[in-house]
Write a protein that binds this DNA or RNA. Structure first.
Lengths: 192, 192, 192, 192
DNA sequence: GATGAATGAGGTTTCATTCAT
DNA sequence: CATGAATGAAACCTCATTCAT
């Protein structure tokens, strides 16, 4: 029953948009009475939360799986494949992505998105810490933060905005970005 | 009077949040009658739009100014200073940034944000096209897209999330990221 | 519950007039919350429509019944009794009649009033077509139009305006008007 | 200036309808400020009243003129010509008629319409009283009331509803109706 | 006299939530 | 458990009218 409601919620979100997402409509789509919603969810927003949580959870799952699979081949191929996995995951349901990423307040995504980011970040940081040589510049934790954020954003915006960049180009640039970053030996630093 | 309303709008947004942003409340905060709002704005959402537009416009102004000032010194310093200008601009009103970037649907920011991005992107692309050597890999337009998005996102998230990264670190990493990316000679490409 | 709302609607209409007919007031009079109105009516105006429809429907019912009862006795008596039935129907709720006929735009009555007129007109036309002799001048359809309109208007205005004419006089005149009209042998016609 | 406002009022009424008739719109159409309206009219409704008054006044003028012109020729021709004059007057501005007769509450027309009716009624009653023979059945005052109402209504509805009746037919029927009525020698009376 | 910005009461409608059945 | 009618607070917006300039 929770299933029915969540499915209906997703469907309403996708076909009617977030502004039209009302409990009545969800109940209708679920073939359930409005009152029943409140037996499984405390709130309208709880329904949205579950839909959103599942969405990012699934994306995280695919990315993490890809990352784990490539455990051996650290390097450009790993970056590319991971980015590819992310793009693929985001492209799986573009309509839902649009609603989730565009129509929902970012704060709505925050919790689960942070989880996703942390999860991937930790993996990345571990890889970086394990990698040989290069006196550990940049620091793994920081570098992981930078890399994850950059890739996530590039991929999301690419799917969302459909810029004049091919999929392959996108992946190439991501590889170049991350590769170059990690190789950057030392930086002319200095606060102003 | 438009000024009063916009100011009240911003203030309500900041102190009460987007969900509580009602015409009556804005009118109250402006010391104005609800009806007066509609002499200057067609819509509730038009008020939000102006607040948002102004916000991003101001950010864009500062970043573009910094970028233009550094016209001579292409290179790491330019990147660093521009990123610095962006962070400074975003830090100027963190409360408003939080509402604008977190509570508003991204679609609400889209128009003005895209303008900001395009503006900076075009400048960056021009610099890249003008830069000597390096058989133009990556292509200026694509590279500009990547760089602008990456910097914007990193800066925004840093201000918003306050991660365990110092301001200087952030700027260093941005410089490294962009520098490494632009130096990345060639990439092991290939679609899967 | 529809009943309660319609009754409240009629009552508000009668006691407060059409200009003061607001959803809140109707809800109040019905002892119901404003929101409940919209579970049964799409619109404020739908409530008015039902009240008006019912009113004319009832009037039509009584007139048609009278007309059907007098099927045998075609002639003056039939006219008189029908007019009588109409006047009686209109006098049944003079307060409502006043609002419906005076305060409401005619266009609001149009649909149902036209239905009433058509209904009676068709019956009258049938009687006229069936009547013996008199080379069918005037044509049944046209004559029915004339008669129905004239009677309706005379009766309505009599009830509404309370002119210096007794009820019997009114009925006499109606009989004379219709009788004379139908006997009018031939007319000196000619456009100017 | 009153002229400008009234003209604007009529124009708004005709082109936008009564529901859209707002003081602001009238002021706009008159090229005048909303405040100025209140220097010449106490009320929004006063503006409507003037427009309506003038309309019916003009109609009354034409009908009365026709009636006065035919002073000699009492009889069918007089009836026909008067009805013709009325129809012509109503057809002069059908758009305004539609608004005045359909969209305005009848009560809005009442005052001036009653004046028109009384004026014509008095003339008719005078003619009837003066006419030779026929032991004055029906009584002039009553007969005038009946005749004026019937003709007015038939003419108005004909112009408004455009029924399947030609203009000549309409006039013929009116002549027959009135002629037959006045000739009706005696009536089988009796209250029920 | 003319202006027009400002008013503010009040109208219609929505929708998350409850609770008696 | 499920229902769904009922709720009622509150949102957005209009517009006749006023009054300082």
């Amino acid at each position: 029953m929770v299933e029915r409601i969540v499915a209906a919620g997703r469907s309403v979100l996708v076909s009617d948009g977030y502004d039209a997402f009302s409990t009545n409509r969800v109940a209708g789509a679920a073939g359930v009475s409005p009152g029943s919603l409140y037996q499984y969810f405390p709130d309208k927003s709880a329904i949205v939360d579950v839909v959103v949580d599942r969405y990012w959870e699934e994306v995280a799952e695919q990315v993490a799986a890809s990352l784990a699979d490539r455990i051996a081949e650290f390097g450009p191929a790993m970056v590319r494949d991971t980015a590819d996995a992310l793009v693929t995951a985001l492209e799986a349901d573009p309509a839902l992505l649009r609603v989730v990423a565009r129509e929902l307040p970012l704060s709505r995504n925050h919790a689960r998105l942070e989880a996703l980011e942390r999860r991937v970040r930790d993996l990345v940081a571990a890889y970086l810490a394990a990698r040989p040589g290069t006196g550990h510049r940049p620091q793994p934790a920081v570098a992981a933060w930078v890399i994850v954020l950059a890739i996530e954003n590039l991929a999301t915006r690419w799917v969302l905005d459909g810029p004049a960049v091919t999929r392959d180009q996108l992946l190439d640039e991501i590889v170049a970005l991350v590769g170059g970053y990690l190789l950057s030996a030392s930086v002319t630093t200095g606060s102003r």
